[in-house]
C-alpha cells in the first residue's frame, strides 16, 4: 500500500498559523474590545467606558475621555487582498488616523503597526465584523496599508484626527472620577450599569470583583487556572454610584 504523507509545506504553514494564534490571542481582538477584557469574566449587560470608546459614543462630557476631532473628510475604500489607501496631505494638528474597518469576508486584517482585526464566517455582516482603531502615524505618512490574504475583502473609512485626553474630575470627597484612559484608572470608574444607568464603580471594588486584584498575586498559570475553575459559573456584582461615590444608581455584574 502506498504511504500517503501529510504535505510538509502545508503542514509547516498550519503549524506556524497555530503558533501565531496561540501566542498572540489579543492580536485578533480590536483595541477597543481588548481593553474591555479587564478580568477573566464577562461584564453581563454592563460595560466599562473607555476613553476612546466614550468619545466614539458621543459622551464628550465624560472626564478622562478622549476628545477626538476629525480633521477633514473620511476616505472610504474597498479592496480585496493587501492594499494601500492614500489619505492625502496631513492636516495641521493631526495626531492619528481613525480607521474603521468592516470585514466583507472572513480573514485577518492587519494595520501598519501590527494590530489586527480578525473576522470569521459568523462575524461577516455583524457588528463584530470589524472595528475602529486609531493609528498613530508619522508626519510624512500619507497612506495606510491593510495586510491580509489575497482573497479577503474589506472596506475602510479613514480620517485624520486630533486626539486629546481630558482630565478626570474630582468630587467633593476628593476622589477622581471619569473614564479609564492611558493614564490608568480614576478612583471612580465610569460604567453603564445593568439597568442602563450611567454611573461609577469604586476602582478597588471592581478590581476585587473582576479578578485583577487576585491575578496580581498569581505566580503560575496553574494558579490562574485553579482560580478560574473556582469562579466558573459564579456572578459577582459591585454597586454603581453617582459621581459622589455614595448614591447608588444600579449594579455592575461580572459573570464567570
Amino acid at each position: 500500500m502506498k504511504q500517503i504523507d501529510f504535505d510538509p509545506v502545508f503542514s509547516a504553514a498550519i503549524r506556524s498559523e497555530l503558533d501565531a494564534r496561540v501566542t498572540a490571542p489579543t492580536a485578533r481582538i480590536s483595541l477597543r474590545r481588548r481593553h474591555l477584557r479587564l478580568g477573566a469574566g464577562i461584564f453581563a449587560g454592563a460595560s466599562i467606558l473607555i476613553g476612546g470608546a466614550a468619545a466614539a459614543a458621543g459622551l464628550l462630557t465624560m472626564p478622562g475621555a478622549q476628545e477626538v476631532t476629525e480633521l477633514g473628510v473620511s476616505v472610504v475604500e474597498t479592496a480585496t487582498g493587501t492594499a494601500a489607501v492614500q489619505l492625502g496631505a496631513v492636516p495641521d494638528g493631526a495626531t492619528g488616523i481613525l480607521v474603521s474597518l468592516t470585514c466583507l469576508t472572513p480573514g485577518t486584517f492587519s494595520f501598519d503597526d501590527g494590530a489586527s482585526i480578525g473576522c470569521d464566517m459568523d462575524d461577516v455582516g455583524q457588528p463584530t465584523g470589524g472595528g475602529s482603531y486609531t493609528l498613530n502615524f508619522s508626519p510624512e505618512q500619507q497612506f495606510i496599508t491593510i495586510t491580509t490574504a489575497p482573497e479577503s475583502s474589506w472596506t475602510i473609512a479613514a480620517t485624520y484626527v486630533s486626539e486629546r485626553t481630558t482630565e478626570w474630575a474630582i468630587n467633593a470627597n476628593g476622589e477622581t472620577y471619569g473614564a479609564l484612559n492611558e493614564s490608568g484608572e480614576p478612583n471612580l470608574i465610569a460604567v453603564t450599569a445593568t439597568n442602563g444607568n450611567g454611573g461609577f464603580v469604586h476602582a478597588g471594588e471592581l478590581a476585587h470583583a473582576n479578578g485583577s486584584e487576585q491575578a496580581a498575586t498569581f505566580t503560575s498559570p496553574e494558579q490562574a487556572l485553579a482560580w478560574q475553575d473556582s469562579m466558573a459559573g459564579k456572578t459577582v456584582s459591585v454597586p454603581v454610584y453617582q459621581n459622589d461615590g455614595e448614591t447608588r444608581v444600579g449594579e455592575f455584574t461580572i459573570q464567570y
Partner: peptide
Amino acid sequence: RRYRALFDSLQRADATADAEQIAVDH
C-alpha cells in the same frame, strides 16, 4: 468552512498533483 480562506491561502508542496488520484490508488 471556518478555515476555508486560510487553507486556500496556504502553499502546498505539490499544488498540481491530483490528490484525488493518489487517494483512489491508495
